[in-house]
Simulated scan of single mutants.
Amino acid sequence: MSVRSLCTTLVLSVALTGVVVPTASARPLTYELPGDLRGSKFEGIGYDARAQRFYVSETTGGEIHRGRLGAAAASEWLAGDGTDGRWTARGVTVDSRGRVYVAGGPNRIDHPGAPDLWVYDRDGKLLAALRTGVPNAFLNDLVIGPDGAAYVTNSNAPQVFRVAEQHGLWTIRTWADATGTIPTQTGFNLGGIVLSPDRTALIVAQGNVGKLWRFALRTGAVSAVDTGTADLVNADGLVQDGRTLWVVRNFSKVLTTLRLAQDGRTARLVAATPTDPERVLTTAKLVQGRLLLVDSKFDEPTATPPYQVVALTPPRR
């Protein structure tokens, strides 16, 4: 066993009071991702529950990789390097019909005229390549709302976009603009996004200042979530399961567990659990009782293998 593998095993094996616990041995603890010699970095993850497949985005090139829960290695599903106008990719989510939504981060900033977001079917057919029309938009993360539309955060402004399809026609528009409520700070602003437990609101992370915001789905009204004493600086990906909210705090290397009110207006700290100190984890999806977390490689100037998704059993107490 390599030193890196041993370290990962030890970190995942400490009791809940220290760090996250190991997953069932019948399934892989890590999933290998394709990479290239120039160094690959990764960010988003989506999951298709019906097909039991996960999708991971590569920021360096925009490739999308796909894996199966029972197989230890994923493979490239969609090419990058300009395919469909995609040179980079960030958040990924999958709707109930198996359609895969990919947020482009700074894709259009770096390549004027290029799309901000793509939608594909399960077979990899491009359904839509959309542009927000908003200058300097950085589309980060996504969630599927109760109405079947996808809601997407902008990390460069306090905005949430809505992506919808009707009779085969896809549209993207600015759904909420909280410029008067959420101050834009240096660094990455709005990122991770989930539904409140009662599905009446979106809960959005502002990682650079460690805050959560609530966007009411009926009105678009925005208010701060009262998180008490919880330290949420570097909040990146959010995962919601009932009233449990896990906050993946990338460079802090902590998985914070919160207990949300049903309407998402308040959150109570449950645990702050250290993650593998050798990994910068960006976001996750809850899959059959385990969290699948993306090891971004963002801490490496030139990333080197192994490129991996890490599986762990999250704290819930």
Rank of each mutant, 00 (worst) to 15 (best):
G70L: 14
V19E: 13
P146F: 12
W175R: 03
F188P: 05
R27H: 06
G105M: 04
R99E: 03
A267C: 04
E300W: 04
L10P: 11
A157S: 06
E76W: 07
L238Y: 03
D110W: 06
V248G: 00
T184G: 03
P315R: 15
L269S: 08
T304S: 13
W87D: 12
V152P: 15
A71Y: 07
I64K: 06
Q262P: 00
A79F: 04
A272Q: 12
G104L: 14
A176D: 07
D84R: 14
G62D: 09
I203D: 11
F42W: 12
D226L: 08
T302C: 04
R90T: 01
D36R: 14
V11E: 07
T282F: 08
G192N: 05
R317W: 08
D263R: 01
L139E: 04
G264F: 00
A235Q: 01
L139I: 04
R214S: 01
V14T: 03
G85M: 08
Q308L: 10
L212S: 03
Y101S: 02
R243T: 09
Q206A: 00
G18T: 12
F138I: 10
L127R: 12
L202K: 11
G228D: 01
A74W: 14
V233Y: 12
L33S: 09
N234L: 08
T17A: 15
Q288M: 03
R316A: 05
R218N: 06
S25I: 00
P106C: 03
D236T: 01
D236P: 01
G105V: 00
D81S: 13
A149M: 04
R265I: 00
S13K: 06
T59Y: 09
T283M: 11
A178M: 15
L212R: 01
V19Y: 13
F298Q: 03
A205R: 11
L190R: 13
L130W: 15
V270I: 02
S223E: 09
V143N: 07
A114Q: 14
A49W: 00
R268F: 00
K125P: 10
T181P: 01
L10H: 11
A89S: 08
S40L: 03
A71G: 08
V225C: 06
M1W: 01
R279P: 00
R27W: 12
T171I: 10
L169K: 15
F54S: 12
V310M: 10
H65N: 14
R214D: 01
Q185H: 15
L245M: 08
T304H: 10
R214W: 02
L16C: 07
R38I: 02
I193F: 05
Y101G: 03
R249S: 10
L142P: 12
